[in-house]
Each structure stands twice: as structure tokens, then as C-alpha cells.
Amino acid sequence: AQDAEASKVCVKCHDSEDLPDMSRSAHAAVGDPRTPGCVTCHGPSLAHVTKPPGAKEQPKPDIVFGRNTATPPDQRNGACLGCHQKDARRMLWGGSPHESADLACSTCHRVHANQDKVLARVTEQEVCLGCHKEQRTQLARPSHHPLPEGKMGCSDCHNPHGSAGPKLARRDSINDTCYTCHAEKRGPFVHSHQPVSEDCSTCHNPHGSTVAAMLKSRPPMLCQECHTPHVAGGVGAVGGQRGVFTLAPGQLAPAVTATTNGKNVVNLWQGRSCLNCHTQVHGSNNPSTANPSPGFLTR
């Protein structure tokens, strides 16, 4: 109430024509005793209100949030966190990557507006990708989560205000964050795949890829970063190239013949590659103790 009273002097100059419409903002809520006044965030700003004698320009308010402000980020953030740090989602802000990088709340948020881009799922990414340019490129690739289509937002997976997980993951680990939408991958399974249980991002790039399923690289290359390959067809070639089904000049026999088995060069490199047979790459709950074992993640 004191702030509201002290702020009355501000609107003598900063009237509705001076400031954008923010009637839908929580900061304009009438009846909420927590609603801030101008001085709550900008400080009493006495010098700004009463221009000192001899001053050429009106001094700026005590706390300024604009682009070229001289107010240090922690002071600007202090104005916001005085109220907003009560929220559990912001309790780990101190020491978080964005705080450590000297970002201010106002770097991303627009307060004097009815629509803050970063609070709307469709427009949130415009703000985030302004700095995270590698992710901007990845999201433009054909295999991606539906962020460019506006059906997901960055904050569906990340808590930009600090978290107990890596990369500001919304939950306590990358996997736990992925399981909020992909709980079928959680298991545990009879036959687990160790890297799957440790970190989904070992194989997937959640921001996008040219390889299907947002894989970091194309199988079998990806699989062969860890696994000894089936030697047959270890050299890359695909059906339709001369020398695969038909002879190329100087070649004695085509790479794939009627008696070539399923581990042929085409089945290893095309279709789903290794997953053509090892289809249960996230784990299998098949308990069968009959040959061939589901332990090889085939069924």
C-alpha cells in the first residue's frame, strides 16, 4: 500500500499513453496485496522525480531495466526476486547458469506488456534462440520436437531459473525430464541398454537432427561408436549403387547376392540400420529364455 501511494507521483508523467497496455498483467491485478507499485521495482527514485537544480538531464530512476542500463544485473534481479523467489521454481536461481552469466530477469522478460513473449509457448523460443544459436540451427533440421510448430516450448524441458538437473533440465536429470513425455522408456527392463538408462542424450539430440528420431549420428555409425560391428558389409554402400546388387567394373562379385544373409551391406546401412534387427534399443521386457535371446534387444 505504501508503494502504491508512493507510485502515484509516477503516473503524473508516465500515463497510459507513455506506457504499453499491461492491463492483463499480474502486475496490474487490483485487490492482490502483493501487486507492486512503480517504486517497488524502480526504487523511490527521488532524484528522478525532482530534477536536481542545475542538472542538465532528468536523472534516471534508481533501478532501470532497459537495454543499455547501468543498473547491475543482481540489483535488477533483486527487484524481481524480492517477490518471485518465493516460488519453488525459482529457488535454485542463485548460482544457476543464467545467473552466473549475469543475465537479468529483464533480459528475457517484458514487464510493461500484456504479452510477454517468453511466457507464451508459441513465442518463447524467439527469446531463447536469440542467444542459443546452435539450438536454432538444430531445430531447423527435419527431425525435431514440435517447437517450430509452436506445439512445445523450451520450458517444457528446461527451467531457465535454475534446476537440480544438468543443462537446466526441468526435472532432476535429463532422463527424468524425457520421461515426462516418454515414460515408456523408463523401464526398468529385463534387458536394459546401459547408456539408455544413464543419459538419453548419449544418442539423441533433443533439439533436432537430420537423422530420424533426432539421433546424433546415423546408425550404424552411432551404434559402432560403442559396439563392435558385424564385419559383413562394414563398408558403407547402399542399394542402387553399382557394385551392390550388380557388378561394377573390375569387381568380381556383387556385394549382395541370393545367398547373402541378413547382415548384408544394405540391411546394415539402410532402413533402420542396426535397428532393423535390434529393434528394442531402449530395452526389452521379454523374459523368454529360449534362443534367440531377447537379451540382444531383438524382440
Binding site: T259, N261, G262, N276, T279, P292, T298
Partner: peptide, 28 residues
């Protein structure tokens, strides 16, 4: 997208025949 595949013969699939000129010993 999903599926199964098997290439015989294999130590994990005893009893499964080899690919010949008149039989398919693998399938995807």
C-alpha cells in the same frame, strides 16, 4: 516404425538354417 529381423545361422539361434540359393535364411 518398428519391426523384427533375424539373420541365420547364428550361435544365438541354433537350428536356424543358412541362406541358400533356394531358401531365405534371413528376414527383416
Amino acid at each position: 516404425l518398428f519391426g523384427v529381423g533375424m539373420a541365420c545361422p547364428s550361435v544365438i539361434a541354433p537350428g536356424c538354417g543358412v541362406t541358400t540359393g533356394v531358401q531365405a535364411g534371413s528376414g527383416v
